[in-house]
Nucleic acid binder design. Structure first.
Lengths: 409, 409
DNA sequence: ACGAGTTTGTCGATCCGACCAACAATCAAG
DNA sequence: CTTGATTGTTGGTCGGATCGACAAACTCGT
């Protein structure tokens, strides 16, 4: 039964409002109390009370009315005091597990990415080995954190199917993983009982672009991740579309041509077999071991190679299915689709126009990621922050306050 | 911005809780206060208060602890008094606009369908003519209603694209409509200022099956409507998936075979061109004008004709795309897909297994509608009831209390 | 420079709704 | 018939949002 079947008690109201104020502060970095009252529709007094509680929790702190520097003069009346994320405030660790490397970053409340580190991983590496390198990267990154700052959790992005209920990695073909409990592996390697949240790379990319990127204020958007495999992260009506088990958005395996080549998923002629990284690498006559780096290779290309044109058209044609199925207002092309769209915008659009239904086509817009190549990494961070917006007090209770010293040992 | 950006004030809490109690009563017909406390997680006293307010609004009434008849003896302790929908309680009018006929029914709070009426419509009929016949059916059906009972609204199902923001029918190929404001037409024909809510047939079928049919308690389900055209209504995470403008779920125009025949949507090889009513009717060598009645024709068939087998397989193959895209736990086959699945279950399942991704396939189950051929009609009623669950007081304010006498004139 | 007008923060009082505790009602089981 | 269990009712309590009044801090016009 969904939440609509349950009642709302006053404790839940407080939790929700407190979390929502924090969400606004997180989204903007700094926001005035006046803006909070209009955005949330609550009374001035109520906002003041909530802001006071957040300050007591050391999540936010008072900001002088002047704002950051000599901001432009505003309207008449008393200037509104600001609320900003606390110095030495809480942070999370974001992990982007790619097919050839792992990137780890420390991200503060407010969305600022501080230190980052990365390491290469190969297709042959076992999951526990990957866990060990990730743990080492985390130790390194946390060592730069303020001593007092609490670690709220770890968010991990995985290029594969992640079961929502427990974060189990069901299938990650490009890592060679099946049923790997990667969250537990990292926890064990760190010897730290900190909340870990895993997510599919496309889902997390969509989350980040929705909160901070090209999808700001857009409640129906799709992030397409091209990362050897092809997947979609879907935000519909402002909420993540997950499906029963968390596998919604596997558009790479939508049917594209029933007479097409066999796909590793068991079917044949999947969209992925027409626009996957292998196909593009082959068209570029790129060495086989460079497939994992396709995005970087394409990023250095300035003029579109002729042989990529039909593939770009097929990208558009496949996007038509996405548009017909989900009716988004923005589709953001991430991973190696980003340079493909940058180079071959006309072909992609033509393929889309050819097959999308007119009313759905009219209301959609293709877009490049607003966060560049960091969408997925920042999405992992956003995902790790989610609990603190749902219930700040409970989330702080599970946070690790002395992460730096405990991980240094 | 979604609701998560706004705050919750106490007035909203009361509205929500009052509506939720009413939703429970509606769903079950009769429910004990004890069940309400456990289901909603609120205190006994609070439930008693809410129930009292609903009774004052004449929406519900007290039911003796004995329940409906000599129910089985229950647990120890004082028996819990029941709450049931009021006699002479509020009702809605549901309209199912099919391709060859319109069905109208009066549906009471609690979901009971009382009187119904229908009339034939032809492809050539203009929208205002359809509106006039629907209005006549409504007048007829309302004439049987209790004099005191308030009419909450009218729910209309349309086989086509309906814009969510204002209920405009953008495209209804099988009715020959483009940009028709059918809600206003019916309002004008009735000369009654009553709330009218339109919806796509598949979306409404999904709603009804979720609330009262084969999808009871299932939060991720899909209703496939085969009604000359092919569409899907999607419930994901307990909420309707609508998309930016309301066109999500147009799976009939997902790509099926790029070399397939041209589709009326402008593309070619859409799934609809492989499993649409015309294809099946042709395979049955049925007269061309019988296409609209395909569901009824198939309902009378007892053994599956051999020539339908490949089509059934293609139904399954197309469903694989639906399963990959939305990861539902139940897919309900409505319209003419209902007899197709009844007759050719094995073929449909085989086609699905052939192309769906393994993890998604494992978590999905195909099903016949729990409401028979009435899913869409009852979904239109459920849709019309929605406002009263969002805010009972406001909805009653817009209701028509003397509908019978005003429509009799 | 100074007052008028405007907007915001703060404080106490108030209101509203959910919660709690005690008690009465009503049943099953022994 | 007694005991135990469960539920409805009632009056009081508590938490949280709101309201009104006032002070604070700014812009703008003179």
């Amino acid at each position: 039964m969904p939440s609509s079947q349950r009642g709302t008690n006053q404790e839940a109201v407080r939790r929700h409002n407190l979390g929502t104020v924090l969400r606004h502060v997180h989204r903007t970095g700094e926001i005035s109390r006046a803006q909070l009252t209009t955005a949330m529709g609550l009374n001035r007094s109520t906002i003041a009370d909530l802001v006071g509680e957040l300050a007591e929790l050391r999540l936010t702190e008072h900001a002088e009315p002047g704002g950051g520097g000599t901001a432009a003069r505003r309207t008449a009346g008393r200037p509104s005091a600001g609320v900003r994320v606390a110095d030495e405030g809480p942070y999370v660790i974001a992990v982007d597990l790619g097919v050839d490397r792992a990137v780890v970053a420390r991200v503060g409340l407010g969305g600022r990415a501080f230190e980052r580190a990365e390491a290469a991983i190969t297709h042959e590496t076992e999951a526990w080995q990957v866990g060990a390198s990730v743990a080492a990267l985390i130790r390194h990154v946390v060592s730069w954190a303020p001593a007092e700052a609490p670690l709220l959790g770890i968010g991990i992005s995985v290029p594969g199917l992640v079961r929502r209920s427990d974060g189990l990695v069901r299938q990650a073909p490009n890592l060679g993983w099946t049923d790997v409990s990667f969250g537990s592996i990292v926890q064990a390697a760190l010897d730290l009982d900190v909340p870990v949240r895993l997510g599919n790379d496309a889902d997390l990319g969509a989350l980040a672009e929705h909160n901070r990127g090209a999808g700001l204020g857009v409640d129906d958007l799709i992030f397409i991740s091209g990362n050897v495999g092809v997947g979609a992260g879907i935000i519909s009506g402002g909420a993540r579309l997950e499906g029963a088990v968390g596998y919604a958005g596997e558009v790479g395996h939508l049917n594209f041509d029933p007479r097409g080549p066999a796909c590793h998923c068991g079917s044949q002629g999947c969209w992925e077999t027409a626009v996957g990284a292998h196909v593009i690498a082959e068209a570029l006559r790129s060495p086989g071991d460079q497939v994992h780096r396709l995005g970087e290779i394409l990023d250095e290309v300035t003029t579109a190679p002729r042989e990529l044109r039909p593939i770009a058209t097929d990208i558009g044609r496949g996007l038509a299915a996405v548009v017909n199925a989900y009716n988004p207002s923005v589709v953001i092309l991430g991973g190696y689709f980003r340079p493909m769209y940058r180079l071959l915008r006309a072909e992609v659009n033509a393929g889309l126009a050819e097959r999308a239904m007119a009313p759905a086509f009219e209301s959609v817009r293709l877009s490049l990621p607003g966060l560049g190549t960091d969408s997925v990494l920042l999405g992992a961070a956003e995902n790790a922050f989610e609990p603190v917006f749902a219930d700040p007090v409970a989330s702080l209770a599970t946070a690790v306050t002395d992460a730096r010293s405990r991980l240094a040992g």
